[in-house]
């Protein structure tokens, strides 16, 4: 009987602190993004012609993104139930072409709200002259968890992979997504709307842009306020895609 009590007591000792830690998981994270020197928005594609104007535009955009991406940061504030991710600041820069290009590249036109009890991610995005609210399931994304690991900061992180599926006017495209998450930070949040992993995403590579944690503050003294976004036209992802297509058709009609 004594042994049984000892086992129960020991188990209690191990479990309780973990539970308390999980309940107090509040954080304030700054994410930044980087691109490789070889970064380009376009690559040569067989059977796809690129006009000189678009080639020149792309060169300008590529250079602007490479030059300005370091000036942009995103903030993720979270507690054990909710999180909010949005553009933080553009360091000492005016809002010119370069900064705008880098903002588009990193997705500054959208912010994301996560709600664990409701298993929900709300994307608030400015597009086609309107503000939208698009809801999706937090666990909708399928991740493949691997045993590959590396240390980021002082956290042991594991690699998870997924696929970014993009449906547009031309077709459906599949691109790999690689995330490194820290199980010691057991919250399912991350940059750019990515989440649903058994730990905070410390690094994420989507297309050829890498998002990484540049500052992590756990249990900050300053109170964290997480507000669920309410402004914007509520649509499903499918409805949003249709609106995009309609806007484009209207534009072409205007042009003709």
């Amino acid at each position: 009987m004594r042994i049984l009590y000892l086992i129960i007591f020991t188990t209690f000792l191990f479990l309780v602190p973990k539970t308390i830690r999980a309940q107090k998981m509040i954080g304030d994270i700054v994410y930044k993004a980087s691109v490789p020197k070889s970064f380009s928005l376009l690559k040569k594609q067989k059977g796809v012609k690129t006009s000189e104007a678009v080639k020149n535009t792309t060169i300008s955009l590529d250079n602007a993104i490479k030059k300005n991406i370091g000036k942009i940061s995103y903030k993720l504030v979270f507690n054990e139930n909710e999180a909010h991710y949005k553009l933080n600041s553009t360091l000492g820069s005016d809002e010119g072409f370069g900064i705008e290009a880098a903002k588009i590249a990193t997705g500054a036109f959208s912010s994301y709200y996560f709600n664990i009890p409701n298993n929900q991610v709300l994307k608030q995005t400015e597009a086609y002259g309107q503000l939208f609210l698009i809801s999706s399931d937090l666990n909708a994304r399928k991740w493949i968890l691997t045993q590959e690991s590396k240390t980021i900061g002082s956290y042991l992180c594991y690699k998870a992979t997924s696929t970014l599926v993009t449906k547009n006017s031309v077709g459906t495209f599949y691109k790999p997504v690689i995330a490194w998450y820290a199980p010691k930070l057991p919250v399912p949040y991350g940059p750019n709307g990515y989440g649903g992993l058994p730990g905070l995403i410390m690094q994420l590579k989507e297309r050829n842009i890498t998002f990484y944690v540049s500052k992590l503050t756990l249990n900050p003294k300053k109170e964290i306020k997480i507000r669920r976004p309410t402004k914007g036209k509520k649509v499903t992802q499918e409805e949003f895609e249709k609106i995009g297509e309609k806007s484009k058709l209207n534009f072409v009609k205007m042009r003709n």
């Binding site: 928005l41 376009l42 690559k43 594609q45 796809v48 690129t50 006009s51 104007a53 678009v54 535009t57 300008s60 955009l61 072409f97 705008e100 290009a101 588009i104 997705g107 036109f109 995005t125 597009a127 086609y128 993009t166 547009n168 006017s169 031309v170 495209f173 691109k175 949003f240 895609e241 995009g244 297509e245 806007s247 484009k248 534009f251 072409v252 042009r255």
Partner: peptide
């Protein structure tokens, strides 16, 4: 026309309509 071409070409490269549209708008303004 340049904005339309940019949007179409970027979509052909697999970019989302939304992002391609943002680049097209920026291109137009510039």
């Amino acid at each position: 026309q340049q904005a339309i071409d940019t949007q179409n070409r970027y979509e052909a490269a697999g970019m989302s309509k939304e992002r391609a549209n943002h680049y097209a708008n920026l291109t137009y303004e510039a």
